[in-house]
Design a protein around this nucleic acid. Sequence first.
DNA 1: CTCATTGTACGAGAGTCATCGTAGTTTGAC
DNA 2: GTCAAACTACGATGACTCTCGTACAATGAG
Lengths: 115, 115
Amino acid sequence: MSTATSKRELDHPARDEIRLESVLHALSDPIRLRVVRDLAGTEGELSCSYFDLPVTKSTTTHHFRVLREAGVIQQTYRGTAKMNGLRRTDLEELFPGLLDRILEAAALQGARVGG
Amino acid sequence: MSTATSKRELDHPARDEIRLESVLHALSDPIRLRVVRDLAGTEGELSCSYFDLPVTKSTTTHHFRVLREAGVIQQTYRGTAKMNGLRRTDLEELFPGLLDRILEAAALQGARVGG
DNA sequence: CTCATTGTACGAGAGTCATCGTAGTTTGAC
DNA sequence: GTCAAACTACGATGACTCTCGTACAATGAG
């Protein structure tokens, strides 16, 4: 099969378990904020290897785990790849408008600073 | 004089030096988020001693400094007191709507969880 | 089966963070 | 000058974070 989902399961917090403080902490790291911005600019999901981050693979794994455990992204295995998607709906229900404002703020700062 | 401002000066980042990551990090701590919520609910400024935080005075000082250095609050001495105010205008110019959304998210979570 | 791709687990190191206690400074009131 | 109130500075401690390297596991292609 071409896009089978593995039995390997990953722990995600339920929607009601997502804490604002954890989300803000997850997004306060430049690398993770960049990942989230890339995810937000894409329809669907992206594999971990899609991102060309300035850190090693182990560190990349770490950052994606922080995002997942904070409830910002949802991860699923597809073959050898691990696909990542924003939990837009959950976040929007819990914290209306928050993600969009943060993304907008990041874009504004990027334009200002030149990142 | 009754409300003189001391010569003791405190370092604040200029508006253009405020970084989104630092603001998010500053707000990702429960105690600091609570302080900011209290400040947001008040017209004008509040002294450090106004807050009844579950930590010692030294730790309180630490948290207010983090908030100040991130550009979230502005601090001035008035007598023996140190007054704290949100940098609403600066934050609104840099990151439109961000602070309000975070405050709203915190309020929603507080209502949900019961904080 | 073999192999390359993709990501994980583990341990370690350097750094930062939240917290405290004690001692000290600054201010205003008396 | 004396004193209390408000806050700071400093050092310490334990926890957590970001980073890495090496070794390992799961998958799909050949």
